[in-house]
Design a protein around this nucleic acid. Structure first.
Lengths: 252, 252
DNA sequence: GAGGGTGCTATTGTCCGACAATCGAGCAAT
DNA sequence: ATTGCTCGATTGTCGGACAATAGCACCCTC
């Protein structure tokens, strides 16, 4: 290991300097403009050719950058239009991405259920305090469509109920936060509903209780009934023989 | 509004048939293979040319599809390598995306704080039950580096504490769930720490209490101290004159 | 035989030029 | 007012090109 001095002083360690490809630099530049709101929600981007001129790169390079932002939901094009439009990421699309990431990371049904246990009762509580009349109507409409014979529809309905509950909090963090969990829960829920005769009525009655609590603005009751509702899911999974330790998968 | 019959029966409503561009179909095909695990985590993708041959499209088209998946974190290339590698989305990157989305949707500091109020106490509770020895060590290391003079570093430290807390739950849903909130909290936290003399010591002592509770496996105490800790943030924001109703922005 | 340089090949990043399809607008015809 | 037509602008896709370089097999020296 002992080398002559001339060899021992070489390594003044150069950091491996980051060479980003041009398409990523372009994407970063556009992203920067979007996050600092120089480019706002409805704004239309210049044509690809014009962008290529401004950035001084080829149109192909621009296109690769656009695809990058497009898939993040930051750019979209309105139905059949040509020019790209700056857009806020659609919450549903963001939730899809989160769900995918969680599924690929081998999240278990238990993990998801635990997340719901934590999130939903306080959401119900907040919803009871802050709901508007329209939120209540939306929830009642969902509850009215309960007990669908098709298991898949029934599972969707159960998830939609929570979604509307989230919307009633008027807190986007909460809305977005529980949506991936609902997506990941749905497939197991479907199996459970299909397997357990009593599942539909139990879900329906829990939903009714919760909505009543919301109607009365009774936050404590909303919380309590929601806790029960979620706990019931777990019981249902166990009764239906669904392994809580299994990986969740994405809805089809 | 009353039109002749011939006019009233027109709209047997055609759905506006989806014609997707080829690059999105390619991306969808690859995504499908990834989500159903025909393509697994470390797998290397064929070269662009070969993909172009297999899909029967031009290489440019393939490249656009790759950019789409790359920005979702589903493809990456290892440091200085050529071929693309299938990858699970890095949680940090996913959290960045969520933060961006929330920020662009005009989420307020109050929304974020409320999310933390809901999430963190149960996280602390779960962490107290499930922490490993190594989690405790990591937390203690973070706590030891508290009270940094630089406000930015101090804010980062406060956020990192919660991150480690999340890791101690060994529930990826919880880990990923609170990370965007921490990112969005950080800038305000920094202002608050800079403004309030007592902030650093209060944070440090709260952290110590929580870690002690975790050490003793005392879930109730962990929860309680965490509740106090988060409530304290709110008091801090008020004392520092930070408007809870203002939009959060992304850390620089 | 081992270790280290060296050239080859495959692959990516970027560019150029081309063309069909189509959207929007303007304009003409009905 | 609706329809049809033309025209320019723009996107989606293609083919081909070339420099840079990562990976690899090869060769050379010791």
């Amino acid at each position: 290991m002992n080398l002559p001095d001339a060899r021992r002083r070489p390594t003044a360690p150069f950091e491996p300097l980051r060479l980003e490809p041009a398409y990523r630099k372009v994407a970063a530049a556009l992203l920067e403009r979007i996050t600092n709101r120089s480019l706002e929600n409805g704004d239309r981007l210049p044509a690809e050719f014009e962008l290529a001129r401004q950035f001084g790169v080829n149109r192909s390079t621009i296109r690769e950058a656009l695809r990058e932002l497009e898939s993040s939901g930051l750019l979209r094009r309105e139905r059949g239009s040509k020019l790209m439009m700056v857009s806020r990421p659609h919450p549903g699309a963001v939730a899809d991405g989160i769900s995918r990431a969680l599924a690929l990371h081998d999240v278990t049904l238990r993990d998801v259920w635990e997340g719901l246990t934590i999130l939903e009762p306080p959401i119900a509580e907040a919803a009871a305090r802050r709901r508007h009349g329209s939120d209540l109507e939306a929830l009642q409409a969902v509850v009215a469509s309960a007990a669908d014979p098709d298991p898949q529809a029934a599972a969707r309905q159960a998830a939609e109920f929570f979604q509307r509950l989230g919307e009633a909090t008027h807190n986007r963090v909460l809305m977005l936060g529980h949506e991936p969990l609902l997506q990941l829960l749905a497939p197991s829920l479907e199996v459970m509903i299909d397997e357990l005769a009593q599942a539909r009525t139990r879900i329906a009655s829990a939903q009714r209780r919760i909505v009543e609590a919301l109607r009365d603005g009774d936050a404590a009751a909303a919380r309590t009934w929601t806790e029960k509702h979620i706990r019931d899911f777990r019981r249902g999974f166990e009764l239906a023989g669904i392994d809580l330790g299994r990986r969740v998968h994405l809805p089809a």
